[in-house]
């Protein structure tokens, strides 16, 4: 069951790599977060930890509904151009994503995780982190940088929950708040940049260099 959900996360991540427009990207993020919600829910139920259940509900509320909603509204506000501006095209991005997944697999072996689903989980977690980083690099729009960070955060959450059975409850809550606030702030920034420069193409910000 857990393996299935993990593959779901991986599939959602690959989806994020190949999409070309903002709403699709947000949708992909929503799928990914939903699978993470499922995994936390199952963990909470099997281990009978009410804390984990609350965290799972928070994921559902924040990452599946509120954050995508906020992002969508920002995307609508700045919808001069919905394209993400792929520096590396979808096919090549997928190849890179696969390579990064392989790398994560090797790396999880290096860390000494060789048994069953923990190994897969660590691989998936690292893939999500790496692919989040890769998305930040290979997409032109500042919008993707925001989402890339959120994706990486998902990966880190996954990693932490499998490595140590979840972070302390309050730390978890604090991180959620952090992420939420950062989304709002970055959203505002993206909006301001868009207003000021009439575009959110980070590539063109190099004019600001001293």
């Amino acid at each position: 069951m857990i393996e299935l959900i993990l593959f779901g996360i991986l599939a959602a991540t690959y989806l994020l790599v190949i999409v070309k427009r903002m709403p699709a990207l947000i949708q992909g993020f929503r799928y990914q977060s939903f699978f993470i919600f499922l995994i936390t829910l199952i963990a909470g139920l099997t281990e009978n930890q009410p804390g984990l259940l609350i965290v799972a509900l928070l994921i559902l509320a924040l990452k599946v509904f509120i954050i995508p909603f906020v992002l969508n509204s920002i995307a609508k506000k700045i919808s001069v151009d919905e394209n993400l501006g792929l520096l590396i095209n979808a096919q090549l991005s997928l190849v890179v994503a696969l390579l990064l997944t392989y790398f994560s697999w090797v790396f999880s072996g290096m860390l000494g995780f060789n048994n069953g689903h923990i190994s897969i989980a660590i691989t998936v977690a690292f893939s999500v982190i790496f692919i989040g980083g890769f998305l930040m690099i290979s997409r032109m729009k500042a919008f993707t940088q925001v989402l890339g960070l959120l994706i990486m955060e998902n990966g880190i959450f996954l990693f932490a929950s499998f490595l140590s059975g979840g972070m302390p409850f309050f730390v978890e809550i604090a991180i959620f708040l952090d992420v939420f606030v950062s989304v709002i702030i970055m959203g505002l920034f993206v909006y301001r940049i868009n207003k000021l420069f009439t575009h959110i193409d980070v590539n063109k910000l190099s004019r600001l260099r001293g």
Binding site: G133, M136, N203
Partner: peptide
Amino acid sequence: MQPGSIHLYLGYIFITLLLLIVFMR
């Protein structure tokens, strides 16, 4: 090395991270 592109800077960080992981072995 400093063309002012955010992507490139992020890329530097990313590549450094990957290299560090490789060298960790």
